[in-house]
Amino acid sequence: MTIVLEMLETGKAKSPIHSCDPRMKLLWWVCFIIVPILVTNPIILIVFTAFIWILAGVAKIAKKMYRFLIVTYPIMIGFIVLTWPFFYKATPDQAFLFNWSIFHVSVEGLIYATAMGLRIVLALTACTFFVMTTDLMDLASGLGEFLQNKLGISYMYPLMVISSFKFIPELSGDYLTITDSFRSRALDIDSGSFFQRLRKLAPVSIPLIDIMLRRAQRISIALEVKAFSVNNKNRTFFKEHRVQAKDFLLLSTGVLALAISIAAVILDVAKVEMFF
């Protein structure tokens, strides 16, 4: 939970990239999510990942991103390396290093697995970079502004998203307090099989639901007192999002990356198989 909150807090920092329009950053992110779907060429993937790390340096989040990804990269890559022998079709013309039962490890296979890993790495890097440089709540309210003013859709939906980021950490705190109070009454939640534990947790759900219901009532009062109305279609959006030159500059890097990838597909150099 705290790691999610920490990422949210990082998104509120100040830098040339943080101050870009969150909606443009969203489009940029979409570009970089499409790239690893199209491309498996390791060289292209490495270059793009490196590029995002350079941007992270500009955004002054390289250190924080490193601390998060240093844990996440190995997990993802390890997962790929452990599973690829099941998926990669071994053909007799490959250079085999190891053959046993259903496991056929070949040089081609290893390169393939690395490429798969790099795809995940690029996607992960792009996501982390996006989350750490964007105030997601600003994005939600920016989209809310668009929905209200262009499509006449109530701000209620973006508000629900934003509020959940306010209340979920608190609810998880309540949950911990409640389970602690049951532990103190000799409920042994920490032992037994998964289903046994689940059954023991049944009484815990009652105070939790009770608290949630009380909260819900107070929230509805708070909304009323704070003059929120579902039918208000003229709501002001305090945060002004003006698209600037640097927004286009950032987006253009995404579009360029996408264009290169498409070109690679057309020129038939997008796939890792070209190295075999």
């Binding site: 309540d174 307090t177 409640i178 602690d180 109070s181 049951f182 532990r183 103190s184 009454r185 000799a186 105070p207 009770d210 608290i211």
Partner: peptide
């Protein structure tokens, strides 16, 4: 719990 009884701040967290 046999030796130490711990009463939490908010009774609604346990009832």
């Amino acid at each position: 719990a046999r030796s130490i009884g711990y009463v939490f701040q908010n009774p609604d967290h346990q009832i």
